[in-house]
Amino acid sequence: MIAVPLPFVVALVLGIYALRLGTRWRLDRRVRRPVIFALACAILLVAVGLRWQFDIAFFRFLLPVLASVLPVISWICFASFDPPLLTWRRVVTHGFFTALILLCSLTWDYWHPPIDFLLCAQFAVYGLLLLRRAGAGDRFYGDINIGEIGSARRIVAAAGGVLILSALVDAGIALDFAWQNGLHVREIVASGNAVMLAFCVFLIVRLGRHVAPAPAYGEPIEAEQKTPSRSQHSVPPGTSVNLENAASDRDIAAAIDQLMQTRKLYRDPALTLDRLSRRAIIPARDISLAINRFYGRNISCIINEYRIAEATQLLADTDKTVTDIQFDCGFQTKSNFNREFRRVTGMSPRDYRNRNANQPGTFMTPFNAVPETQEFVG
């Protein structure tokens, strides 16, 4: 029976996944991140397999160069979910280290530069940067479904963890060569690859799940109004905002509340911060900062609270099933609905229905629940 090395098997699986997802490349630009990341992982895995199967000089030269590209691609795919993917600034900034590794590989025979430790440092730095980005503001997740921003943060954190784990594996390989002449290097590579490949598959599949589908309500993205600059604030009619100065947090929260109550945008499971920004005609960054300061919670929590507000009303006033209510209010998964419902109400949907069966339901939005005397602090 023919034995196929593990890196080749996983590279084949990732390649098939990337090709299948790539069929939407021209239709939806948001699939490009998981496709690029999957292909990058597949190519690197093939190089790893060839390096340790055949130990040819060319593969020894090629592997560190390809490896130095993966942290860059990970940063491009996970640090921000907003287009564009590539800019000249990104190429110059992040391509410097890859060029350095290429130069070291080309001149290896002359001065034996510490390529392994340089790669360890690169993977560790990018991993720490991704962990830091995981806790950054919601504006970095503008193209992700608002209700799934929390999950997207976990994906970014996992991506950073993968890079740090890879740095540790590379450090183990380098130390084994330095102290044991590579006696245990195959075991280190095999065990490290097994763990990292599992993480990579998880990241790619989850990233594909969190790519936002086409706009809801029958409106193409191009038909929505362009988001103005920070100096061009505007809000829907009926909301009082001073256009000469930056809109206050309460004004922005009121504008978002008006959109939620009149247009029921929270019902759209594909709602993203970018789409909300276009509907409100307020920059996404301003929305994110204002919501965080005004409510003390992020935009993902607030949108889910609008959904739960309607869910509580439907549970009290209708005989709809919990599952139907879940989908009507914009939740895509039962687990997320139950988790958010318990966070907001302190009980399960069925318990809430049983306790409020004989009482008329009310639509209490997060904005209405905030005391009028609340003042901006920050």
Rank of each mutant, 00 (worst) to 15 (best):
R186W: 01
R24Q: 09
L6V: 04
V189S: 10
D55E: 07
G346A: 14
A47M: 08
F54V: 00
I76C: 02
F199I: 12
P228W: 02
D28P: 01
R154K: 15
L44F: 06
A67D: 03
V211T: 12
F37T: 13
A158F: 02
R278Y: 01
M1D: 06
A223I: 02
A214T: 09
F54N: 06
Q313V: 12
A124N: 03
F97W: 05
A194F: 10
S300Q: 05
T107V: 12
D351L: 12
S191F: 04
F140S: 11
A42V: 01
I155P: 01
W75H: 13
C120A: 14
I282Y: 01
N338K: 15
I173A: 09
A214K: 08
A254D: 10
P84L: 04
V377A: 15
T227P: 02
Y266G: 06
R153V: 02
P83M: 05
L45C: 04
L14S: 04
L100G: 08
Q374W: 12
L129V: 03
A369C: 05
A57K: 11
I303D: 07
V162Q: 10
F97E: 08
L314M: 05
A18Y: 00
L50M: 01
I308Q: 07
Y352W: 15
A136G: 11
M364A: 15
V201W: 01
E340M: 14
L276T: 00
L314P: 00
S166K: 07
I164L: 11
K320I: 02
L175I: 12
A253V: 03
I188H: 01
D274L: 08
I164W: 00
A152N: 09
C200W: 12
D249A: 14
D109M: 08
G218D: 06
A174H: 03
T333V: 02
G127D: 02
A212E: 06
S348D: 12
R24K: 11
L197W: 12
R186C: 00
D249R: 13
L207M: 15
F81W: 09
R353C: 10
L165E: 02
S348G: 12
Y141T: 10
N338W: 09
V31I: 05
G22S: 06
N292T: 13
R279A: 10
P84M: 06
P84Q: 13
R267A: 09
A171Y: 03
Q122A: 13
N354Q: 15
G208L: 04
L131D: 05
D317E: 15
S234D: 11
V344K: 08
